[in-house]
Design a protein around this nucleic acid. Structure first.
Length: 362
DNA sequence: GGCTGAAACAGTTCCGGCCA
DNA sequence: TGGCCGGAACTGTTTCAGCC
């Protein structure tokens, strides 16, 4: 698949991360990766392993490799190359100069086993428990939002698009298994609405705001962060066309000590307001502009106050997109889910490093 | 040396980007 | 717009390494 950065596109992201010392060293210092061994071993079913056979790589080592992939948006091939090439990667993984580096296929197979065992939620929950043990309780209320994670755009004919939309496999693909397995039938198109920016040199007073509709293809990362620490506490992944508002009941965490819930207008509905009222949450969801009427000044001021708080979640997405280069090149929602989940987990690792007095993740 | 299971290799197909 | 190239995801087959 294309779209992934090549071997030599890593330097910018690495330099950004390295601005204040070796970020991987800091990460290894604050995150105890051994806490993941239990869920990893369970996923790989080591307990039923009979004697004999080639010994596998250590599951924690393999998991740390997936973390590197998520942090630097590396393909499996690029990961193998970079581990062999970079001393900082080798130090992070605890490999010596003569250490054997897992093959790209081995990395792919390890990730595939985690997909099959649906382990990512257990890993996320395990780290969340570790955060709580360390004193980082979910506090101050929660901020909920979603963003589209791009995937390679499929080059399908109208006939094939219609078949996929109906949940059918196009006839010409049925006999060609190799072709079918390369086709992503779960990723979807969505439209992102935004305001056009003032052109450089133009008079801002003469500029009339224009709505832009940007088509996006891929998956959606739904997250809930705690306001006090900015850590991702709940998450889910879906196709890009999933409605954000419908996910609020799944993302709303009862573990947060604060009752406030912040979200944009996409989450405002009678159903969601009823859900928040039942759960004793305090709704800080943005108000919609009244139909064919100007936004009342009082509402606009209230929304502006909410925006100032809600912007924290946008920093998470910006970090994942621009610094980590998050993109889903795997095929199917199950694989996309682990990629997105690992990106969320990797973000929390970096955020923890910052909270503990390290480099800023933004 | 045979068995076993994981790692590694080799091949197929895809998409993004470049160029005519 | 279509052809081509390179990088990437995925899979079938072969090789490797540990145990008996």
């Amino acid at each position: 698949m294309a779209g992934q950065p090549g071997f030599f596109d890593l330097s910018d992201r690495y330099e950004a991360l390295s601005a204040a010392g070796d970020p991987l060293e800091r990460l290894a210092g604050v995150v105890d990766f051994e806490v993941f061994r239990g869920p990893l071993v369970a996923a790989l079913r080591r307990s039923v392993r009979v004697k004999g056979g080639r010994p596998p790589f250590d599951p924690v080592l393999m998991f740390k490799i997936l973390v590197l992939q998520a942090l630097y948006s590396l393909s499996d091939e690029a990961t193998e190359f970079q581990i062999k090439d970079r001393l900082s990667f080798q130090r992070f993984l605890g490999l010596g100069l003569d250490g054997t580096v897992p093959d790209a296929t081995t990395v792919w197979l390890f990730r595939e086993k985690l997909v099959q065992a649906e382990t990512i939620d257990k890993l996320f929950a395990r780290f969340d428990a570790a955060l709580t043990d360390r004193g980082y309780l979910a506090m101050g209320g929660q901020i909920i939002d979603a963003t589209v994670v791009p995937a390679p755009k499929q080059r399908n004919s109208e006939e094939k698009k219609a078949a996929i939309k109906d949940g059918r496999i196009p006839e010409s693909w049925k006999a060609r298994s190799a072709k079918l397995r390369q086709k992503d039938r779960d990723a979807c198109w969505s439209v992102k609405y935004t305001k056009a920016k003032v052109k450089e040199g133009a008079d801002p007073k003469a500029f009339k705001p224009v709505d832009l509709a940007i088509p996006m293809f891929g998956y959606k990362n739904h997250i809930g962060i705690d306001r006090a620490h900015g850590l991702i506490r709940t998450w889910d992944a879906s196709a890009a066309n999933a409605h954000d508002g419908a996910r609020l009941p799944e993302l709303g965490s009862r573990d947060n000590t604060g009752a406030g819930v912040w979200a944009d207008t996409a989450y405002r509905s009678k159903k969601n307001e009823a859900f928040l009222a039942r759960g004793m949450f305090k709704s800080n969801i943005h108000q919609r502009k009244p139909n064919r009427r100007a936004m009342p000044e009082r509402t606009a001021r209230a929304n502006a106050k909410r925006s100032a708080i809600r912007s924290a979640v946008e920093h998470v997405f910006a970090g994942q997109k621009h610094r980590m280069g998050l993109i889903v090149c795997t095929i199917g929602i199950a694989r996309a889910r682990i990629k997105i989940g690992l990106a969320n987990l990797a973000y929390n690792f970096q955020r923890l490093a910052w909270l503990e007095g390290g480099t800023a993740p933004e």
